[in-house]
């Protein structure tokens, strides 16, 4: 809209409305931040008598905060990495191919995106259970009995990193494939053709030409995959039950459900630790939002 000066009345209603909307958006954060730095925090918003970092120290000393953080980082980092590799190669193939399966595949991944994960959770549980049994069988035959549990912690499908990483990566793969396909569509073939003429192998083309060109696309798909995996609650809730694999969202959820006195300061501190990476990733991903979801799908 062209910039016409506001009349005082318009200006007042403009800033008044924006003030109300901003207040609505920011109020819940006020309690979270106050409580996290207040050693005597409760459920209600109040001015802290004392402000310090003791809640944050306690997250790591009294609770298994570090473990939860590490588990979240391993699972979400692993899933993001996998999405990057798969969507990078897959998106490239989708963009360059003219085969008959291109169109059906692209329609299919849009439809996959709209399936609510809750609708798949029951059969997924059975798939994961079957895979878990198969893997446990293999692990038992190779690894001495004492170590089975600790190995399953990594390669298990239920209560294991591998299963959750694969699952989260798959769920967020369609959007990433779409982003990378669209991205490679906009990358001229000429660079590649020049490299082919110079006799470069696919490996060389990949390293010297495609990877540097693909960086912005990979940044977008990686960030969206990370944000979605990091915020996911349903899959850890369903597929993780042992304490040593607990991730941050489960840590918060279970601390919140505790029957005894809930320690809100501690809870708020965990929540702040959990939220910080999400906000940073979101801030970085912001400039990709419109181009991705204007034509793509919401994450």
């Amino acid at each position: 809209m062209a910039e016409r000066p506001d009349t005082p009345k318009t200006a007042a209603s403009r800033y008044g409305l924006l003030f109300v909307i901003s207040l609505y958006c920011i109020m819940p954060f006020v309690w979270l931040l106050t409580a996290a730095f207040d050693p005597g925090a409760g459920l209600f918003l109040e001015v802290p008598a004392k402000v310090d970092l003791s809640n944050f120290f306690r997250v790591f000393q009294e609770e298994d905060g570090l473990l939860w953080l590490m588990n979240s980082l391993i699972v979400c980092g692993g899933a993001t990495l996998l999405v990057l590799v798969l969507s990078g190669f897959g998106g490239y193939a989708l963009s360059r191919t003219h085969a008959w399966w291109k169109r059906p595949f692209l329609y299919a991944i849009i439809l996959v995106r709209v399936i609510p994960p809750t609708a798949l959770i029951v059969p997924l549980y059975k798939v994961m259970l079957t895979c878990n049994l198969a893997i446990a069988g293999v692990v038992r035959s190779v690894v001495p009995p004492d170590y089975v549990r600790s190995v399953m912690r990594f390669v298990g499908f239920i209560d294991g990193y591998l299963g959750l990483i694969l699952l989260l990566a798959t769920m967020h793969l369609p959007l990433a494939l779409w982003i990378m396909k669209t991205f490679f569509d906009s990358v001229s073939r000429e660079y590649e053709e020049a490299a082919i003429m110079d006799g470069a192998t696919f490996g060389q083309r990949l390293r010297r030409v495609l990877l540097p060109l693909a960086m912005p696309g990979l940044a977008a798909s990686g960030l969206f995959a990370f944000i979605a995996a990091w915020g996911d609650f349903l899959f850890p809730l369903t597929f993780i039950s042992s304490p040593e694999l607990k991730m941050l969202p489960l840590g918060i959820y279970s601390a919140f459900l505790r029957d005894s006195q809930i320690d809100y300061g501690l809870l708020a501190a965990i929540a702040v630790i959990y939220t910080a990476p999400a906000i940073i990733a979101f801030a970085l991903a912001r400039r990709f939002l419109v181009q991705t979801f204007g034509g793509g799908l919401k994450g």
Partner: peptide, 15 residues
Amino acid sequence: NAVPEVVAALMWASM
């Protein structure tokens, strides 16, 4: 929009 679901729930439990 950037806040994980569980954290949003926690903040609103207080609100």
